[in-house]
Simulated scan of single mutants.
Amino acid sequence: MIKDRDKITRSTREAADWFVRLNLGTIETEELEAFSAWTKADPQNRAAYDHLDEINKSMVALQDDPDLRAAAAQALARGPERKPARRQGGARRARILAAALAAACVVGAVLGWSFVTRADYVTGVGQTLSARLEDGSRVQLNTDTRLRVRYTRGERRIELMRGQAFFDVAHNAERPFVVEAASAQVRALGTRFDVRKIGQEVRVTLAQGSVEIRDPKVRTTPWRLSPGQALAVTPTAPANVAPKAVDIATATSWTTGKLRFDNVTLAEAVNELNRYSKDKITFADGVPTDHRISGVFSSGDHSDFIAAVSSLYRLDTVRRFNGDLELRPVARPSA
């Protein structure tokens, strides 16, 4: 694990160096060949560089920021030595400066300069993670989740790229806390809430306080949730989609390592359990997937769930060659 973290850090820093070099004027053929070799040497290298490029596209608006200009000088100071360049005209120098500003913006975002604070938090399948953010807020990530933290002086912004996270927000009325997920934005001031993004659906569940949800692709006016309510939206949802009452203990049971099912279909329960394991539960023909089930089960161990449904619906379990567990009806003895 430690080696993996070091490798990611090294790839990110090397990607930052390459980003500066490739955005500062004329590129020599040898440099392009070296860059190509670097990206092919390790998939993590290409991923790190693509991530910087993604940040760059999202931060173009900051190019005239005075702090960014100061950061540009730092980026240029730490950049690799270049061959002496021919004297350039004013327009050419302006283009180079713009590129330098963009590169500095990206490098600063990754390496932690003070004008922008960001950090990525990632969990794999079956993993969870709790973290304390710099403002005192806490976030808990569920399985297979990725989020990005982008704090500025006037706003605390989180991007939930995929998965699910529970937020316990430190109150600061002058610095709003906003969570982005797809086209939805959840705005809160001192509250506790859960956001889940699976595919194009974003589901927000409020445990305490109040939140305002905006999605301009669905309607122009925001929704407001009260504790004990949840709202699920997709880009194609009708404008009159409304919050619904939910059981908070059930909706947030994953934060305790448990999954609580309350009269859900067998298919729905298995879909949820499969989020937490690379070895999936599947159904053979004849399994009553529309039958209902209730209970509390471990999110990391499917054995109790399989034992319960096998007994309830007379099912056998077969381990497939790829590691999946197939539920199938118990074969009846021939007459």
Rank of each mutant, 00 (worst) to 15 (best):
T12H: 05
R13T: 05
W18L: 02
G25H: 02
T26S: 14
I27R: 15
E31N: 01
F35A: 09
K40L: 08
A41K: 09
N45V: 01
A48H: 07
D53G: 04
E54P: 07
N56E: 14
M59H: 13
A73D: 15
A75P: 11
L76A: 12
L76G: 15
P80D: 01
E81C: 02
K83L: 14
R86Q: 12
A91C: 05
A91I: 09
A91P: 06
A91H: 04
R95M: 09
W113I: 05
T117H: 13
T123N: 03
G126K: 03
T128S: 09
D135R: 04
G136C: 00
R146N: 06
L147D: 07
V149N: 09
R153K: 13
E155W: 04
I158E: 02
M161N: 11
R162T: 00
Q164T: 12
A165F: 02
D168L: 08
E174N: 05
Q185Y: 08
R187S: 07
G190V: 03
T191I: 04
R192S: 13
F193H: 11
D194A: 05
E201C: 01
S210P: 09
I213M: 10
K217A: 13
R219C: 03
P222M: 00
W223C: 13
L225F: 06
G228Q: 03
T234F: 00
A239R: 12
V241N: 14
A242M: 12
A242S: 15
A245T: 10
A251S: 13
A251P: 09
T265C: 05
E268W: 03
E272Y: 03
Y276N: 11
S277D: 11
F283N: 15
H291T: 12
S299G: 14
S303D: 15
I306G: 10
A308F: 10
S310W: 01
S311E: 10
F321P: 15
N322S: 07
E326V: 00
E326C: 06
L327N: 06
R328C: 06
A335M: 10
